[in-house]
Design a protein around this nucleic acid. Structure first.
Length: 245
DNA sequence: TGCCATGTTAAACT
DNA sequence: GAGTTTAACATGGC
């Protein structure tokens, strides 16, 4: 579930609670839930894979990690441990298997919102600068770097690299400037394609490389390999994706 | 049925 | 102290 586009969909699904007052907070999250009772949910903000439920002077940060999920106005209780629930007069939201943290609203001011690839404030030039200052970095690590491409996850990484024809272990400093520009453009572009496909429940159908065995361009076998510092799995075609090193 | 994974942090190492 | 590796979290899909 939890790459940037999925988080935007989650935000949409809980948008109706913005401006509503918390009647009750529950779940096993290790935060002081009591203080939320009676407070108004002022705003819901997302930054990459993180969601912030903003109240007057505090914000609840929710990160779905790898297997997190959520539901709205659920009728029957799933047999999972409830991490956090917020009950409002017009319904309720539930979060499971996620990291929940209470932060000061001051904390929000320190976030580099312009690093969020799906945000209106996304600054491609800023990303370009960050990439230029890391010539030794592998492109697969760069895409997964939440300070550069906040919201991009492993699926997006694999699909973007396939689209622009770049091998995941390519070094940023060795890639032609044109490729760097394509990289930045597609990181955002593909994220929005992901968003629409996810909304239509057709995301997997559109995967070209991720978890695939055969290259859709040339028909050869795709390589599956753990790449980069993060050692996350990459799927790529040796013929159609050039290695810059 | 067992293994693996769309992610991150912190502890435990070297 | 820096950098690297491992564990922990806990669930759904194949």
């Amino acid at each position: 579930m939890p790459e940037g586009p999925s988080i935007l969909l989650m935000k949409e699904s809980i948008q109706k609670f913005e401006g509503e007052k918390v009647i009750e907070a529950g779940g096993n999250a290790k935060i002081d839930k009591e203080i939320l009772t009676g407070r108004t949910l002022k705003q819901i903000k997302t930054f990459g894979k993180q969601t912030y439920l903003v109240f007057d002077d505090v914000a609840v940060r929710i990160h779905l990690l790898m297997f997190g999920s959520h539901s709205v106005d659920e009728q029957t209780k799933p047999d999972r441990q409830l991490r956090l629930s917020l009950i409002f007069s017009n319904g309720s939201m539930y979060f499971y298997t996620c990291n929940v943290k209470m932060v000061d609203t001051e904390f929000l001011k320190k976030i580099d919102w312009e690093a969020d690839v799906m945000s209106d404030n996304w600054k491609p030039l800023k990303a370009e600068k960050k990439l230029k200052s890391n010539p030794e970095m592998m492109v697969c690590d760069a895409l997964m770097d939440q300070d550069i491409f906040s919201g991009v996850g492993n699926i997006i990484k694999n699909e973007v690299l396939f689209r622009i024809g770049v091998q995941p272990e390519s070094l940023l400093g060795k890639m032609p400037p044109k490729k760097i520009k394509e990289l930045i453009k597609e990181a955002r572009n593909y994220s929005f394609d992901f968003l629409e496909w996810k909304r239509d429940f057709t995301l997997k159908k559109h995967w070209k490389a991720h978890t695939k065995k055969i290259c859709p361009k040339c028909g050869e076998n795709l390589i599956k390999k753990q790449t980069g510092k993060g050692k996350r799995r990459s799927f790529y075609c040796e013929i159609d994706q050039e290695l810059y090193q």
